[in-house]
Amino acid sequence: MPEHEFARMPSWAQAGTLAVVLLLGTVLGFIGTFFHQSLPPIGLIVALGTVGLFLAGLRSWASVRSPAATGALGVAGMSAILSLPVGGTVLVPANAVGLAWTFGVALIALVVIAWPDPARLSRLRAVTMEGPAEEKDSTAP
């Protein structure tokens, strides 16, 4: 069973990687929060698509869920911070596009984090299609 690169890292490197992923998620949440209201609905589709690709890439790169969860925390955290009204300005209004951005990020994060490990699924599929090695009869001609 091959391990992914993240699982082979020492713990200090894993912590550093998670810090970088959190920073990237925060930057993506910042950009997406500003961009989702531009050119509706194209801005929302591009922003949510970018979040989905970012989180799916992290999930497929690592055999564990922690990088994708950390990236989702960065995106959702920055989106939540920027949705607070500051000086009478609201960046995420309570319209359809704003609600789709708020709940879309959460839904994408939930689906990507809950998705099973693709490498593990392919190993399980190979075993069920060929059958376990112990069941094969070695005395058959």
Score class of each variant (00 low, 15 high):
residue 103 F to K: 00
residue 84 L to F: 14
residue 100 A to I: 00
residue 89 T to N: 11
residue 78 M to P: 01
residue 78 M to A: 14
residue 106 A to G: 08
residue 77 G to A: 06
residue 82 L to K: 04
residue 104 G to C: 09
residue 90 V to C: 00
residue 87 G to N: 07
residue 91 L to P: 06
residue 109 A to M: 10
residue 103 F to V: 14
residue 87 G to A: 12
residue 89 T to A: 07
residue 104 G to R: 01
residue 96 A to Q: 13
residue 103 F to Q: 04
residue 98 G to A: 08
residue 103 F to M: 15
residue 92 V to E: 03
residue 91 L to M: 12
residue 104 G to N: 05
residue 93 P to Q: 07
residue 83 S to A: 15
residue 102 T to Q: 04
residue 76 A to S: 14
residue 83 S to H: 07
residue 98 G to V: 12
residue 98 G to W: 00
residue 91 L to A: 04
residue 107 L to R: 00
residue 102 T to S: 08
residue 80 A to F: 13
residue 91 L to F: 09
residue 90 V to Y: 00
residue 98 G to M: 03
residue 96 A to W: 00
residue 109 A to Y: 13
residue 92 V to S: 06
residue 102 T to D: 02
residue 92 V to T: 15
residue 85 P to D: 06
residue 89 T to C: 00
residue 81 I to P: 01
residue 88 G to E: 09
residue 107 L to Q: 07
residue 78 M to K: 05
residue 94 A to H: 07
residue 105 V to D: 02
residue 93 P to I: 05
residue 76 A to Q: 11
residue 89 T to D: 14
residue 89 T to E: 15
residue 82 L to F: 12
residue 105 V to P: 03
residue 102 T to A: 09
residue 97 V to M: 11
residue 93 P to N: 09
residue 96 A to T: 14
residue 94 A to I: 01
residue 82 L to W: 10
residue 79 S to G: 09
residue 77 G to I: 11
residue 86 V to K: 02
residue 103 F to S: 12
residue 105 V to I: 13
residue 88 G to T: 07
residue 83 S to F: 06
residue 76 A to E: 11
residue 97 V to T: 15
residue 106 A to R: 04
residue 77 G to Y: 09
residue 98 G to H: 01
residue 101 W to Y: 08
residue 99 L to P: 03
residue 87 G to S: 13
residue 102 T to L: 13
residue 109 A to G: 06
residue 99 L to S: 10
residue 94 A to L: 05
residue 94 A to W: 02
residue 92 V to L: 11
residue 88 G to N: 05
residue 97 V to G: 14
residue 91 L to N: 08
residue 84 L to S: 11
residue 94 A to R: 06
residue 88 G to C: 10
residue 83 S to P: 12
residue 87 G to D: 13
residue 102 T to H: 03
residue 93 P to G: 09
residue 92 V to W: 01
residue 87 G to L: 08
residue 102 T to K: 02
residue 82 L to M: 15
residue 107 L to I: 14
residue 80 A to H: 00
residue 84 L to M: 15
residue 87 G to W: 08
